Simulated assay, not measured.
Amino acid sequence: MLRKISILIISLFISLMVHSTENEITYKFSPTIQIAKDKYQKLINSLMSDPAAPNSISYSPELDQLLKENNEVKINQYINVEKRKYLATLNKYILQGDPSASMALLEFVLFFKETELKSEIDISPIEKLSDQNNAYASYLLARHFEYDPTKYLKFLEKAGEQGSPIAQRTLVDEYNFRLPKKLQSIKKAEYWKQKAIASMGSDEYEEEICKLANCDTGEFELVDFSKDIEKILNQSK
């Protein structure tokens, strides 16, 4: 049961990661970092896969066996070892001056909620990429500064102007209802809506909006993933 809960929670975080990066301006990580990212992604995919299914994703024979045995303690130990290896690879290449390693580390910290690592990240290489018109760098910095409203909005708008669809979509909601009343602006919300439509196309934009709303009734309902996690935990009691 514990493994099932862990996998469901991981799935929610992965769905957020996929959702936030789809339609983005393509950012190319260095070959070494991309290989490390792909390997870690395969680990996550294997955890979400049914080991008994014929098309299950295999990360390693050792993990396959642990999953078949449903050995929660050893599975978690294995995952932690692989996570440390991944982070060690990123930090190694950060020290060698690879800015894509810094991007991958911030991406990991944000999407997997590894807040204890946040203070250890040197964001200066990412800020340089942001100043070089890198929309994804600007978007990650906005997420990094989500508890600093001034910097958050600064980098989110920067990402939007640089062509990031997820930033543009987010700004629509920010100016419509998320920001404090005095900062909300129908005019700015419409501006970013048109930017997002221009980036994505009207059909895909509406499809994205429908992920956060009941389109059959026309009623808007913001998705609260914390409730999904709470529901999963309650089911385990």
Rank of each mutant, 00 (worst) to 15 (best):
Asn91His: 15
Lys74Gly: 13
Glu116Tyr: 14
Ile79Cys: 06
Val223Gly: 10
Glu72Asp: 04
Asp203Met: 09
Glu190Ala: 13
Ile14Lys: 14
Lys227Cys: 15
Gln162Asp: 11
Lys193His: 02
Leu183Asp: 00
Asn91Cys: 14
Tyr147Arg: 02
Lys128Tyr: 11
Ala198Cys: 14
Lys42Asp: 00
Val18Phe: 01
Ile35His: 11
Lys28Arg: 12
Ala104Phe: 02
Lys92Asp: 15
Glu174Met: 02
Lys74Cys: 07
Met1Leu: 11
Leu212Gln: 15
Asn214Glu: 06
Pro51Asn: 03
Ala159Phe: 00
Asn176Phe: 11
Val81Ala: 10
Asn234Val: 13
Ser58Tyr: 06
Asp203Arg: 03
Lys42Leu: 04
Leu140Thr: 08
Lys154Ala: 08
Leu105Arg: 09
Asp228Leu: 15
Ser185Trp: 02
Leu110Arg: 06
Lys68Leu: 11
Ser119Pro: 04
Val109Lys: 02
Lys158Leu: 10
Lys182Gly: 07
Ser100Lys: 08
Ile232His: 00
Asn76Tyr: 13
Glu204Asn: 05
Pro165Thr: 07
Asp224Ala: 12
Asn70Asp: 06
Cys210Met: 14
Ser236Arg: 14
Lys151Asp: 00
Ala196Tyr: 04
Thr89Cys: 10
Leu105Ile: 08
Leu140Ser: 09
Tyr205Glu: 07
Leu140Pro: 06
Gln162Arg: 12
Ile229Asp: 06
Ala36Thr: 03
Glu174His: 01
Leu171Arg: 04
Tyr86Ile: 03
Tyr93Met: 12
Ala88Ile: 10
Tyr147Asp: 03
Thr32His: 12
Glu219Thr: 07
Asp64Trp: 04
Glu207Leu: 15
Leu233His: 12
Ser102Gln: 10
Glu120Ala: 15
Tyr136Asp: 02
Glu69Arg: 00
Ala189Tyr: 01
Glu62Gln: 12
Asp228Lys: 14
Leu183Thr: 00
Gln132Arg: 10
Asn80Arg: 13
Ile166Cys: 10
Glu190Gly: 08
Ala101Gln: 05
Asp148Gly: 08
Asp228Ile: 13
Gln132Trp: 05
Leu66Thr: 00
Ala53Met: 03
Ala142His: 01
Ile35Asp: 12
Asn23Tyr: 08
Ser58Asn: 06
Lys211Phe: 07
Arg143Met: 05
Thr115Gly: 08
Ile197Pro: 02
Leu87Asp: 05
Gln168Trp: 02
Ala104Val: 02
Pro61Arg: 01
Leu212Ser: 15
Ile75Glu: 05
Lys118Asn: 02
Tyr136Trp: 05
Pro99Cys: 14
Asn91Ala: 14
Asn71Thr: 04
Ser226Gln: 07
Leu87Lys: 06
Tyr205Trp: 09
Lys237Trp: 09
Val73His: 13
Ser100Ile: 12
Leu156Asn: 00
Glu207His: 12
His19Val: 11
Ile94Gln: 06
Cys215Asp: 09
